[in-house]
Design a protein around this nucleic acid. Structure first.
Length: 743
DNA sequence: AGCACGCCGACT
DNA sequence: GTCGGCGTGCTC
């Protein structure tokens, strides 16, 4: 029987060496639960972390020596390790991190390793290119062409020049250069093909930190200087200059000879941010995200491993880079949901960052204006140090925030802009300022139905309505991306005059705004209306320059762009995120409202935010209006504590999915019947129930939920429970430890 | 993850 | 009669 892989088995940590005849465990970047055993052949010595090439089935794959063999496969079935690769080994720290991350998230070890080895030419010797340097020798026959080459070579002597470059400088053909090399007048030497990363400044070019910033930076510098693991929650409102503060921590880390990593939410990896880093350090940092491919990917990976890349800015996958000595990890906007990876491997970058820092003996800084309740609670409990950045950097004040009660001040039928918001907008336009209407809904209308026969347009592959997009004249499923042409007649009854759009999207809101404010310049910002980051940048710049009176936008306008003329924010439907009873609905709505409201009045002009809501007495709305975030968090914490929910208890989601509805349902029921196994361990099992979106891309999904007290070894309990249920091959069971969303 | 093996439809 | 579709299962 197959024994479960136990991370941290004897030998993994030390400098264990394996000699010919020994069994070694080789981890492969494939979904195996643990390393596979191979034999060390004659004439080879291996150590943990070594990259090796092994035969798997009938193909050659690259793997990493993980420890001694498990011994669960008969010796005669073992294959020898084919070769030890001439690549710097995977460091013990990263191996330990991969082990523990796989264990925590219940992901097969090989899948975790894959995240750390997704780089081109892995296991190949580093690419070199040949440069030529003058040897000082004179050729037997000197010609004018040869003289020019030798002059050029002498002039650019030191490092040497590429043959093509030398020929170009001397104005000769490649043959002349070749001839001189053959004659021994030019000597080849190999240098790494990838250009090096430029060094970074240690000291800030100008010391223009505010008092509060300087104090916060000082505390962070201390934490970094102390060496060992530490975690800090850096709280600062929008515009308080968090970036400048944590970049000082990065500078300290770099000055101490260690590497620093800044993680940003996927969407925030903007040229603007990189420019700020460049302004501070005098050079661009290394960048790592899915847009970095090919040669550049290899260059950054190698530079992280060699220690040459002192500062890496990246998305969550940068956590798996093979840093030589990682001393600091910053998670900017740590509350952002996009830090939770939801596809192949499920992990939360915030939690994995804390894990990696603890393994590496480094500092973690979690930065946010509106921290996640998890991080807030950790700071309350004294597990994280907490640093506050109270003031806005500069003279601007926070906007005045008020609610507009949609029950008493409702706009007309199929209208979404209240009279109060319209009036305020009118005033701002007259003053030459800008207004922002925030509605987190792309397209024209979220639902289209036929008033004659009641037909509703749903996605054929998902349990979701097709969203009307008038601008592109199509219906679109926001779940799977399926599109269909916007029909003119109802497919149910054939009538062509009774199709009705229900609910608002940004396109529809723009229509209403155009009627209300004739002559106003209206700009709609929605990801599906703008192609590419360059176009987004251009539109944002145009708006900042005043080329719009009213901006209507989805999520994408909520973050990090400064519009100096923007002094009014209207949230069209603040209740939208509160529906559905999600555990984090209130928290997320608060974070979103805070962020959107913060768009108003960043420069010298005071701002105002109008929050349209049907529940102005909801704790979220009260907290937003009063600005008392602490009270809100305390309230949320109390609710979660009473119900034993995270961060005071633990959750795990179990998603059962497949194309065959009957088999999925049967597997889910079998898991449900095995409930005693998990209840015996002290946890509670809920479900199975159809997932909130029961069908996505043609796959049926059911879910179960496990709730456990904090101290319980949750993963162990789940493993024992899952092992008792036979899962057919066509059904997939995925465990989501600490689920964020419940879709 | 790949890749082979295997068992049922439309072609030379 | 074969080529080939991708479901199922294995790889130390």
């Amino acid at each position: 029987m197959c024994r479960r892989y136990q991370p941290g088995a004897p030998g993994v940590s030390g400098a264990a060496r394996f000699w010919p005849g020994a069994r070694v465990g080789v981890a492969l970047p494939m979904p195996f639960p643990g390393p596979l055993d191979y034999l060390v052949p004659e004439g080879m010595a291996l150590a943990c972390g070594d990259f090796v090439s092994v035969e798997l089935g009938r193909r050659q794959v690259v793997g990493v020596v993980w420890g001694p063999g498990a011994g669960d496969v008969a010796a005669e079935r073992l294959k020898p390790v084919a070769a030890r690769l001439d690549t710097p080994p995977l460091r013990a720290g990263l191996r330990r991190f991969i082990d523990r991350a796989a264990e925590y998230t219940m992901t097969p070890l090989g899948m975790m390793l894959r995240l750390a080895t997704r780089v081109p030419d892995l296991g190949q010797p580093p690419r070199m290119r040949v440069l030529l340097r003058p040897t000082g020798a004179r050729p037997d026959r000197m010609t004018p062409a040869r003289a020019r080459v030798l002059d050029a070579a002498a002039e650019h002597g030191g490092a040497g020049l590429a043959p093509v470059e030398l020929a170009r400088l001397a104005g000769v053909s490649a043959g002349v250069v070749k001839g001189l090399e053959a004659a021994g007048c030019l000597a080849p030497h190999a240098v790494p093909a990838d250009p090096p990363f430029p060094p970074l400044f240690g000291q800030p070019p100008g010391g223009h930190l505010s008092q509060a910033q300087a104090e916060a930076a000082g505390l962070l510098r201390e934490a970094v200087a102390a060496g060992g693991f530490s975690a800090t929650l850096l709280r600062g409102v929008t515009g308080s200059g968090k970036t400048e503060v944590y970049l000082e921590a990065a500078a300290e880390c770099i000055a101490r000879g260690r590497q620093a990593l800044v993680l940003l939410p996927e969407v925030a990896l903007t040229p603007g941010f990189l420019a700020r880093v460049e302004a501070r350090f005098g050079a661009r940092p290394a960048e790592w995200h899915h847009g970095v491919t090919g040669t550049e990917r290899r260059r950054v990976w190698n530079a992280a491993a060699s220690g040459e890349a002192r500062l890496v800015v990246g998305a969550r996958s940068a956590l798996f880079l093979p840093f030589e000595d990682l001393g600091l990890i910053v998670i900017d906007e740590e509350h952002e949901a996009s830090f939770k990876q939801e596809d192949v491997v499920l992990y939360h970058a915030r939690d994995m960052a804390v894990l990696r820092a603890s393994v590496e003996g480094g500092a973690v800084v979690l930065a946010s204006a509106t921290p996640s309740l998890e991080s807030w609670a950790n700071a309350e409990a004294g597990k994280y140090r907490r640093i506050e950045l109270p003031d806005r950097f500069g003279r601007a004040v926070l906007p005045a925030i008020e609610t507009v009660d949609l029950r008493s001040e409702a706009p007309g039928r199929d209208r979404w802009i209240t009279a109060r918001l319209a009036e305020a907008t009118q005033g701002r336009i007259a003053a030459g300022e800008q207004a922002l209407f925030f509605l987190n809904r792309r397209g024209y209308a979220p639902l289209t139905l036929c008033r004659a026969c009641g037909h509703r347009f749903g996605c054929p592959h998902c349990d979701a309505w097709m969203v009307a997009h008038r601008f592109r004249a199509e219906l679109m499923c926001h779940q799977c991306g399926h599109t269909a042409p916007l029909p003119s007649a109802c497919p149910g009854c054939g009538r062509d005059d009774r199709l009705a759009a229900c609910g608002p999207g940004v396109e529809r809101l723009a229509e209403e705004a155009a009627e209300l404010f004739p002559g106003a310049r209206i700009e709609v910002l929605s990801s599906d209306l703008i192609a590419g980051p360059e176009a987004v940048k251009a539109r944002l710049a145009a708006i900042a320059a005043g080329e719009a009176d009213i901006v209507i936008g989805t999520q994408m306008v909520a973050k990090g762009h400064n519009f100096p003329l923007l002094t009014l924010v209207g949230v069209i439907d603040a209740d939208m995120g509160l529906l559905g009873g999600d555990l984090r609905a209130a928290e997320r709505t608060f974070q979103m409202l805070h962020q959107v409201a913060g768009r108003a009045g960043r420069a010298e002009r005071p701002g105002r935010a109008l929050i349209q809501t049907a529940s102005p007495d909801h704790p979220v709305m009260r907290a937003i209006v009063s600005g008392d975030a602490e009270a809100f968090w305390r309230g949320q914490a109390e609710l979660r504590n009473l119900s034993g929910m995270p961060p005071y208890g633990r959750l795990a989601g179990v998603i059962v999915s497949g194309e065959d509805e009957a088999r999925v349902a049967e597997t889910a029921r079998a898991l449900g019947r095995a409930a005693p196994l998990i209840e015996r361990a002290g946890a509670e099992l809920y479900g199975p129930a159809p997932a909130p979106i029961a069908r996505v891309r043609g796959r049926v999904r059911m879910r179960l939920l496990i709730k456990a007290p904090k101290g319980l070894p949750l993963q162990e309990a789940i493993r024992g429970w899952l092992a008792a249920v036979k899962v057919p091959a066509a059904v997939r069971v995925v465990v989501d430890i600490d689920p964020q969303s419940f879709l």
